[in-house]
């Protein structure tokens, strides 16, 4: 139509462009809450850090706590378990990475790098087998502990040693060590 051609195209198009851009920005800001509501809600986030009282745990005892919906193994190791773990040559391990979120990503899987404290008594690990996600046995006194005295996953036969490192079986990685620290002598904060 002739009316269209005589008008300056840039002025007419600008308003359509501005309107379209504005509307698109509006649509995007509406879309965000729809997407974000599926993210972990406030109750989940509130439990993303927990504090655990470890004052009652004796040497050679383990407890399991729930953190972010998963079991966390907290074990106070005996001297024998510590020695067994320290003697192992890291290069012979199937997974040489410490998998410790409190250290740098390339730390090697020495027993020092697996333990939480300087005395190496305390082991804090996510109790989920790194193969396909079952919960390994070994926390209770009567449990099977596998060939290396630590934990044993009954689903597909992964064996973990007394530092929670994979030694035999289909799992490829050592048990994950979450961000954790001693708040004081009696309390560990995880997360």
């Amino acid at each position: 139509m002739s009316k269209k051609d005589t008008k300056e195209p840039s002025r007419r198009d600008f308003i359509f462009l501005a309107t379209g851009a504005f509307a698109a920005a509006g649509a995007a800001s509406v879309a965000w809450p729809i997407v974000d509501q599926m993210n972990p809600d406030a109750t989940a986030l509130a439990l993303s850090k927990i504090e655990v009282d470890i004052s009652q745990i004796e040497r050679g005892q383990s407890i399991t706590v729930k953190w972010r919906g998963k079991p966390v193994f907290i074990r106070r190791r005996t001297d024998e378990e510590i020695q067994m773990a320290s003697r192992v040559d890291v290069n012979s391990l199937p997974d040489g990475n410490a998998r410790n979120n409190n250290l740098t990503a390339d730390s090697s899987a020495t027993d020092e790098n697996r333990a939480l404290d300087d005395n190496k008594e305390w082991l804090v690990m996510v109790g989920v087998c790194t193969h396909l996600g079952c919960v390994p046995k070994g926390q209770s006194l009567g449990d099977a502990k596998g060939d290396y005295g630590g934990w044993y996953c009954p689903c597909h036969g992964s064996h973990y040693d007394t530092a929670g490192r994979i030694r035999k079986g289909p799992a490829a990685k050592n048990l994950d060590i979450p961000v954790a620290e001693f708040v004081n002598d009696n309390v560990i904060r995880i997360g």
Partner: peptide, 13 residues
């Protein structure tokens, strides 16, 4: 109430 208080933007939705 959980939606109104805990879910991200739950109150808005």
């Amino acid at each position: 109430e959980h939606i109104m208080r805990n879910v991200n933007y739950g109150w808005l939705i």
